[in-house]
Amino acid sequence: MAKLSKEAVAQLLEPYLDDLVERHDVVDGALVVTADGHLLAKKMDGDTSVKRLATMGSSLMSLGTTITGELKMGGCRNIIVENESGFAAFMNINQKLVLVSLTNSPNGLGMLLSASRACSTAIAKRFNENKTDKPGE
C-alpha cells in the first residue's frame, strides 16, 4: 500500500484549507492534525501556538468520542469551544484526521460549522477516493 509522507499529505491538504479560509470571511484560520496530535497543514495568521492547538485538538476529539461512547450516542462529530471572542470547532475528518477551525465572529458559529463540515467531507472524500493514499504515515 502506498503511504504518503507527512509533507505530501500537507501539500494535498493545503488547497482545502486555503479554500475554507479564503472563500468564507467568517473562518479566520484552520488546521488539519492527526488524531495523535501532529500538525499536518495550517492556514492561520498570527501567533497562535498551532502545535499546541494540534495536540489539544486530538485530545479533545478523543475525549469527545469517549464521552459520546459512554453515553451510547455513537461517534463524536464535532466539539465547539466558545468564548466572547468567537468559536473554535474541532471536527473528525476520518479516523486519522481532525479539522480545527476558528472564527473571531461571535455570531459566526453556524457559518463556521457549515463551511468546516463541507471542507471535512471534501477531504474525507479525497482520501477515500484513493485508499492507497494513507495519510500521516
Binding site: A35, D36, H38, S58, L60, S62, L63, Q95, P135
Partner: peptide, 23 residues
C-alpha cells in the same frame, strides 16, 4: 478502563498501534 486511544501515525508505531491522547 476508559481510554482515549487513537491510531498512531509516528515512530511510536514501532511499539504499538494506538496511543493515549487525553487520558
Amino acid at each position: 478502563v476508559v481510554s482515549t486511544d487513537v491510531d498512531v501515525t509516528d515512530e511510536v508505531k514501532a511499539i504499538k498501534d494506538t496511543t493515549t491522547v487525553a487520558m
